[in-house]
C-alpha cells in the first residue's frame, strides 16, 4: 500500500480546516466569556486571529481548488511512497517521543543512553560495542557540557540521579 503526496495534501487541508474552526470556536466561547471578543482595536483580542483565520480559510479554499482541478504532483504518477518506507521515521518519532515522555521518570542518565542506543539500532548499527560505547560517551559528554559548564540541572527522575561534576 502506498501513500501519495496528494493524500498528504488532503490530510493537511483537513487539519487546517480544523484550525480555522478552532479559532472561531475559541473567539465565540472562551474569548467572549473573558470579554475580549467585542470592542475596538484595544479591547478586542479576537479580531486579529479571526482576520488571520479568514485569510487562512480563503487560502485553504484556493489550495483545495488547485488540488481538485490542477494536475497531480509528479510523485503521484510514480504511485507515491510505500507505507513500509515510513516505518523507520515513524519508529524514530516513537522512540524520541517515548524518551521525552519517560525523561522525567527515568531521569537523563538512564533514559538518554537507552534512547541513543535504540536509535542507533534503528539506523542499522548491530555491533553491541559500536552502540553501547558511543551511546554512553555522548550521553555523559552532553551531561558534562550542560551540567558542569552551563549549570543546568538535567532531570534526575524518580531515582534522583544527578552527577556531581
Amino acid at each position: 500500500m502506498n501513500i501519495t503526496p496528494r493524500q498528504v495534501e488532503w490530510l493537511v487541508i483537513a487539519l487546517l480546516v480544523g484550525l480555522v474552526a478552532l479559532v472561531f470556536q475559541q473567539a465565540a466561547t472562551d474569548m467572549a466569556a473573558q470579554g475580549i471578543a467585542p470592542g475596538g482595536p484595544y479591547d478586542n483580542a479576537a479580531a486579529y486571529p479571526k482576520t488571520v483565520a479568514v485569510v487562512l480559510g480563503l487560502l485553504i479554499a484556493a489550495q483545495a481548488a488547485v488540488q481538485l482541478f490542477g494536475a497531480a504532483p509528479p510523485q503521484d504518477e510514480d504511485g507515491g511512497v510505500p507505507l513500509r518506507k515510513l516505518v523507520r521515521p515513524a519508529a524514530l518519532i516513537f522512540i524520541f517521543g517515548l524518551y521525552l515522555g519517560t525523561l522525567p521518570l527515568l531521569g537523563y542518565h538512564v533514559a538518554t543512553p537507552l534512547m541513543l542506543g535504540a536509535l542507533m539500532v534503528l539506523c542499522g548499527l548491530r555491533r553491541p560495542l559500536a552502540i553501547a560505547l558511543p551511546a554512553l560517551l555522548v550521553s555523559f559528554g552532553a551531561a558534562y557540557v550542560f551540567e558542569a559548564w552551563l549549570k543546568i540541572v538535567l532531570p534526575g527522575g524518580l531515582f534522583h540521579l544527578n552527577m556531581v561534576w
Partner: peptide, 16 residues
C-alpha cells in the same frame, strides 16, 4: 547512524 541520535539528543537537552 551516529549523527541522527546525537542531533536528536541536542534538540531535546537544548530545548529543556
Amino acid at each position: 547512524s551516529y549523527l541522527i541520535p546525537v542531533v536528536l539528543l541536542l534538540c531535546a537537552v537544548g530545548t529543556f
